[in-house]
Design a binder for these strands. Structure first.
Ligand code: MN
Ligand code: MN
Ligand code: ZN
Ligand code: ZN
Lengths: 176, 176
DNA sequence: TTGTTAGTGAAAACCATTTCCATTATAGGC
DNA sequence: GCCTATAATGGAAATGGTTTTCACTAACAA
């Protein structure tokens, strides 16, 4: 499965709600609360992955992450990265993105200090991706209405949307 | 490469413009003009593929098309289907879509009698896809403005956009 | 009709992602 | 702090959609 903007949310896991949610049970990560609250174990690999995502400019592929953490955590395998990204995506903590370059890419749904909602502008030639926030408010406004209308009309419980613009970046449209 | 809403257009091919464009050179297909005009040869396979796309409800995968035409054209291979879909997509005659089910899907950019622009509503559970045209006008209006603004600000030559909503269809949200 | 070469099919290669399974390490209960 | 159940892991193998290779075929301009 690949490339929808991060489907699904919430923790479907056991772990009776309302349990002690110490955000300090290991180290200091802001995500530990949510993570533990859903009954997931805190492992070195998961920590490293989340860490690399929050420290990068976003749009990392599984292999990008592997390369980033491998020097420091040589025994975190690619398989674990795929699995963790899947978990995080299901928890709604990261978005799974598809920019058409044949591999899934991921970005944090929101940083430690709140969301920074944006959409994407993708160069179809060199695959450069620009995060933009211009027009976001109007877009989000219209999307909300649309979601509502569509939800009612087609009996869909809409949880997510993807807006992406495709075209040629300056360099690529110049090089003819 | 996979899953962006049909990148690129136009014919980059030789074939000096302004050549005889008989729309009747073989059979009757409405697309022959555009096809031949770009210097592509008209083959049985291409004909069959275009035909199956125009006769179906859309969102066919390469293999779907293969299955559809195989009985009548048993010597059109899957490879040719992939190649043809790529050509058609580059010509802007079809859109390449990604609904997150791990394979590319295709639909005609416009039918024989003009476009029928729509966006998609995708069930993340059963992968059902609804074409909707509601709100399209407002969406397209806003998108046009956004495209313009972004094009200027980021020096992008925007050619295309993707809007998709994800959620659970009636059945899937019911089955808990 | 013929020659040039775009197009083709079958098989093999590709490669991102998933599955398998024996091993390890987290965390709750003591 | 120790023990235990089992969630999590990693390496290797499998998967599966798509692409590449290459010898062969057929479209079409002349
Ligand atoms: Mn982004
Ligand atoms: Mn459609
Ligand atoms: Zn570019
Ligand atoms: Zn469904």
């Amino acid at each position: 499965m690949q490339g929808n903007g991060g489907r699904g949310h919430g923790c479907q896991r056991g772990k009776s709600a309302g349990d002690t949610q110490r955000a300090d049970c290991r180290g200091q990560g802001w995500w530990h609360g949510k993570f533990r609250g859903c009954g997931y174990r805190l492992t070195t690999g998961r920590e490293a992955i989340l860490d690399s995502l929050s420290k990068s400019e976003g749009h990392l592929s599984a292999e990008d992450i592997y390369m980033k953490i491998h020097p420091k955590y040589p025994n975190v395998g690619l398989t674990t990265i795929y699995r963790t990204l899947d978990v995080l995506s299901n928890l709604g903590m990261i978005y799974k993105l598809d920019f058409g370059d044949g591999r899934a890419r991921y970005e944090l749904a929101e940083g430690p200090k709140g969301a920074h909602h944006h959409h994407h502008l993708v160069c179809t030639d060199c695959n450069k991706v620009v995060d933009y926030t211009d027009f976001i408010d109007e877009e989000v406004e219209l999307l909300r209405e649309t979601e509502k209308g569509l939800g009612v009309k087609y009996n869909f419980k809409i949880t997510n949307h993807v807006i992406q613009f495709y075209g040629l970046c300056e360099q690529c449209s110049g090089k003819k």
